[in-house]
Design a protein around this nucleic acid. Structure first.
Length: 775
DNA sequence: GCTGGGCTCTTACCC
DNA sequence: ACGGGTAAGAGCCCAGCG
């Protein structure tokens, strides 16, 4: 028989001497199914150096009679675009590969070993072109559910699952989860502190809460496990669950002698690829992993992200984690905490509703399973996409190597013309680096090293740096990028016929955004020393062609008499003249073979002398503020609000005096103590362990003060602090936001080091001085 | 012992 | 754990100082 399968989760096992892939998903009838496939044996390659006959080496290896060795095949492949002979070594037990590689790589005539570092389950996806979050057709035979898997049917695969047409996801059960615990001495630790509250919300509209009555959380955990298994979610949504909820719950369960059996088999959640927590048969998605995609939100808390997405309840009052214990221990206030926890579960569910589509698209495009794709860094997502394409071209997958890092020259940034300009158009090259890579065939497998002869088909040589790339055939990057760009264009055309807000539109929008993310990542990937296909000249050449392109565009504009105000990497800001601009666009496109388009037109735009910082008034009357304090997360809300107010007055009214008066008002408000603590808080990221800093800085000192009280902050966390009155350096006066009180705040600091600099940054252009900003 | 200029460290932005 | 280019604040160092 045949079944359709929408792939939700995959895992590889080795049982009774055989490797087995388990594909978990849904079928066309919406049933949960498990497809077991033992038809693919794991393998790796030995690349040969040509000093011996391939068959001789193959024979030698076969004669070793390694117990799990199945087969040795001589094959032709490509490696960085060059033809190579390789041996494909097929092995039955994936866990033995590592040992075999060590042994066989030493055989005379073997240059290197490849693809032994791919997980078996990932190998299966890549080899068969099977995609997570995608429909497949597969020939199957129904078998007994002897694994006791929580599914409606178990099958044995009798064919390779065949990728079906791109179609809507099946309707799935989503459960969100938020947990709370407390300690009298700081952050809760699972070895000492019980779980207080577990809140769940489901996309069927249910909410459910489990709270611990006394100190014994065993009944809480038991009830939660039972509830989760009964609901049987396909997707488990958390916000930070990979680092907080799951490790905590696992430890608590262990202490009670309970099994945290929340999967579709009989195992427990476990840490797996990219550090995510895997729950067999389901997709455990930690939505905090997607908060990087939302650049507008600087402090990436659940509430802030939910508020940005416009979710109901997102702006209701927050209970800070330092206050949990007080709420929990006070019978009058405990209900508030319970409600707060429940609200978090609802917000996570809302986040899942907003972001799951994007996550699914990213998963199906990259080929990384849904539970992994968020946890995987951008470089690994694009690499996964490239790996899948490489297979189609017979290109072997290089190892991941540790390499030294040497910087190279990047894009050009022009000095802006300072001042207020009327009618300025921003023209930018559409997807400049990807298109350069396509146009000049810049790729890891088309690069011709300096000592190599010029191939007959000819080369493109990069300006300035001289790196050469063969003109034919199209390289891996070229093909990958062409396909991505074409697919995105197609999706966007489809969107034109749909209503925004419709689910069909939303799905396609998520899809085109996922494709854009991947397309834009390709150039960065090429220059990343951690990339499997890293070749520095690839990135260096793309950057050089970028400089060449923008320089030529600037020359063209000058010749035409277009007044250039500014430019950065792939954009030029010109005094807007409809006729000249149209001609400029046509001319540049004809000359460079790259598309350049007016991105936006400013009615008025303000530059200081600094690059990468400006503010403009768009034609719809809105402000567009770039690079300035308003756009930064490490300035107080106060300073940002004042600067935004100033910019609004300058750009709309062209009245510096009025702006100065506005600043004086704001200073008075501050002096009167009317600015809330929240707006005086500075948030900065801890980029390394507090011990590793070479100098003493405020946010690190604040982090240490948090740690002293048991609130450990770790690398990657944002620390909020305020500056208190007193003597000494700023770092000596940094008080963690959570411990700060309004009375101790040093208002003078906020006036002199926050409001004044951010206001003067733009007002000094108009000869307004500090004195004029004093009330 | 203090001051101020300049360098360094650090963060977060732009494209 | 994707690239380089850039601004900016605060700490730190030390020459110069009757």
């Amino acid at each position: 028989m045949k079944t359709s399968l929408w792939l939700l989760d995959i895992n590889g096992e080795f049982i009774q001497g055989n490797p087995e892939i388990r594909l978990w998903g849904l079928d066309g009838e919406g049933r949960r199914i498990l497809v077991r496939d033992s038809r693919l044996l794991p393998y790796f390659y030995l690349v040969l150096n040509g000093t011996r006959e391939s068959e001789d080496i193959a024979n030698e290896i076969e004669k070793t009679h390694l117990p799990s060795l199945e087969k040795v095949d001589v094959v032709n492949r490509r490696y960085f675009g060059k033809q190579v002979k390789a041996l494909k070594i097929t092995v039955r037990d994936p866990s033995l590969i590592e040992g075999y590689v060590k042994k066989l790589a030493k055989v005379h005539g073997v240059e290197t070993h490849l693809e032994d570092d791919l997980r078996y389950s990932y190998r299966y996806l890549v080899d068969n072109g099977v995609s997570p979050c995608h429909w497949h057709e597969v020939d199957v035979e129904e078998v007994r559910n002897d694994l006791k898997a929580s599914v409606e049917a178990v099958y044995r695969a009798e064919s390779t699952p065949k990728l079906g047409e791109k179609a809507d996801s099946p309707s799935m059960r989503v459960l969100s989860l938020s947990m709370m615990a407390h300690s009298p001495t700081g952050a809760p630790k699972p070895d000492n502190n019980p779980v207080d509250i577990i809140s769940c919300a489901t996309n069927s509209g249910e909410t459910k809460q489990f709270a611990t009555g006394n100190k014994d959380d065993e009944p809480t955990l038991e009830a939660f496990i039972k509830y989760l298994r009964d609901f049987d979610p396909d997707i488990i949504a958390t916000f930070g669950g990979n680092t907080f909820e799951w490790p905590f719950l696992l430890e608590r369960a262990k202490r009670s002698g309970l099994k945290l059996q929340v999967d579709r088999l009989d195992t427990e959640p476990h840490r797996s690829a990219y550090g995510h927590i895997s729950i067999t048969g389901r997709a455990n998605v930690d939505f905090s992993d997607f908060s990087d995609e939302i650049g507008e939100v600087k402090v990436k808390s659940l509430e802030n992200i939910a508020a940005f997405l416009g979710l109901p309840e997102a702006t209701a009052p927050i209970i800070e984690d330092v206050d949990y214990a007080d709420y929990w221990n006070d019978p009058k206030r405990r209900p508030e905490l319970l409600e707060f926890s429940m609200r978090r579960a609802r917000l996570i569910l809302g986040l899942a509703d907003e972001l799951l589509g994007f996550a699914e698209e990213l998963s199906s495009l990259s080929g990384l399973p849904l539970d992994q794709v968020g946890a995987a860094a951008v470089g690994f997502r694009i690499e996964s996409y490239i790996i899948r394409q490489a297979l189609n071209y017979g290109e072997l997958i290089p190892q991941r190597l540790e390499r030294p890092y040497f910087p190279y020259q990047g894009g050009i940034v022009l000095n802006p013309k300072p001042g207020l300009h009327e009618d300025v158009a921003v023209l930018d090259f559409k997807a400049m680096y990807p298109n350069l890579m396509i146009t000049y065939n810049i790729s890891c497998d088309t690069y011709i090293a300096p000592k190599e002869p010029t191939p007959p088909e000819g080369v493109n040589a990069a300006p300035e740096v001289g790196h050469r790339f063969r003109k034919e055939p199209p390289g891996l990057y070229s093909r990958v990028l062409k396909e991505l760009i074409q697919t995105r264009d197609r999706v966007r055309v489809e969107m034109k016929g749909l209503k925004p807000g419709d689910s069909a539109y939303r799905i396609r929008d998520a899809r085109q955004r996922a494709i854009k993310v991947m397309t834009n990542a390709a150039y960065g990937y090429a220059g990343w020393v951690g990339a499997r296909w890293y070749i520095r000249p690839v990135a260096e050449a793309a950057a050089a062609w970028g400089r060449y392109t923008i320089t030529r565009a600037i020359e063209t504009a000058r010749k035409m008499g277009l007044d250039i105000i500014y430019g950065d990497t792939d954009s030029v800001f010109v005094k807007y003249d409809r006729g000249k601009t149209d001609r400029f666009v046509r001319e540049v496109e004809a000359e460079m073979g790259l598309e350049i388009r007016p991105d936006k037109v400013y009615r008025r735009v303000l530059f200081t002398e600094a690059k990468k910082r400006y503010a403009g008034l768009l034609e719809d009357g809105s402000l567009d503020i770039v690079g300035l304090e308003v756009a930064r997360g490490d300035w107080t809300e106060l300073a940002k609000d004042v600067q935004e107010g100033v910019l609004g007055i300058l750009l709309r009214d062209k009245d510096p005096e009025k702006a100065a008066a506005y600043v004086r008002e704001e200073v008075s408000t501050l002096r009167a103590g009317k600015v809330p603590l929240r707006d005086l808080t500075i948030w900065k990221t801890l980029t390394k362990d507090p011990k590793e800093y070479a100098v003493r800085v405020a946010h690190v000192e604040a982090a240490k003060r948090l740690a002293e009280k048991g609130w450990e902050v770790t690398t990657g966390d944002k620390v909020g602090y305020v500056i208190a009155k007193g003597e000494g350096k700023l770092y000596q006066r940094a008080v963690p936001y959570a411990f700060a009180s309004p009375e101790e705040v040093d208002l003078k600091y906020y006036e002199e080091q926050q409001i004044l600099p951010s206001a003067l940054r733009v007002l000094s252009m108009f000869k307004i001085t500090e004195k004029q900003l004093q009330p």
